[in-house]
Design a binder for these strands. Structure first.
Lengths: 135, 135
DNA sequence: ATTTACTTTGACGTAAACGTCAATGTTTTG
DNA sequence: CAAAACATTGACGTTTACGTCAAAGTAAAT
């Protein structure tokens, strides 16, 4: 009725699945970013799909340009269910500042995108002219 | 008829305008990324608007996740006037891959923005409920 | 019961991108 | 022209995000 035997894996397998190295996973653990679901008597770390999802989320947040430390301040907002009452306003404050930052970066990227399009068009024109003349 | 006296500035002013430090500018110079337009007999570096534009471009390429070394291999594509004929297609190829990257990152940011908005709304709802109940 | 493959905890190493003196020279300003 | 503000070249320091041993224990496969 209850436990679906949640498919455990060790650090190597998690690393392959998450496209990182075991060292990276241990590093994340040191920063408090990703803890194993269980620790065997031997000392071996065991993980489940849940930790894999978290690992992947960390990767995406990294691609956004967040440092691991920044990630550690927000990652739980994605995984903890928000039933605690304490500090809700602070959480909102943090999320809102992240939102502002994301919007700023997005508009920077839009600007850059336009510049790139212009540059490409410019080079294309030169290319076309050149092909008309000699080659 | 010719020289419009192109408004020179020293490293400190360029740094402020580009929102970096003088150290950063010297570092970029060491990497061959950004050279002063002139070097006075005193040793002082002098820059113009052209170098400021270049400095800003470096910043944007950095935000794209390029390393300074990668930037040094492509930055000239943005500033050399494209009258040379050789390698135009390669240039277009690089610019287009940058464009693809920019678009990918932009859509990632959009996704993240939506997630943030959702999370904020969610926490807000919990906050409102809690205030209804006790507090 | 051995190999063989994995994992553990240190602990030192590294690459990138600057930060931060220090000692000294330069430019500007009152 | 003296003081304040700014710049120069070293050169060592720092942070981030891991890489890379080493020594030793554990698990899996034959």
């Amino acid at each position: 009725m209850s436990g679906e035997a949640p498919r455990e894996m060790r650090i190597g397998e998690l690393a392959r699945a998450g496209n990182v190295t075991p060292r990276t996973i241990r590093h994340y653990e040191q920063l408090g970013l990703l803890r194993p679901s269980e620790r065997a008597a031997s000392g071996y770390r065991y993980y489940t799909e849940h930790e894999l999802a978290r690992l992947k989320k960390i990767g995406r947040l990294k691609e956004l340009g967040l440092s691991l430390e920044e990630i550690s301040t927000v990652i739980d907002l994605y995984f903890e269910d928000p039933t605690g009452i304490r500090g809700k306003r602070k959480v909102i404050g943090i999320l809102e500042s992240h939102l502002r930052e994301v919007r700023r970066r997005r508009s920077d990227l839009e600007q850059f995108e336009r510049e790139l399009e212009e540059n490409i068009a410019k080079v294309r024109r030169f290319l076309a002219e050149a092909e008309h003349g000699q080659d």
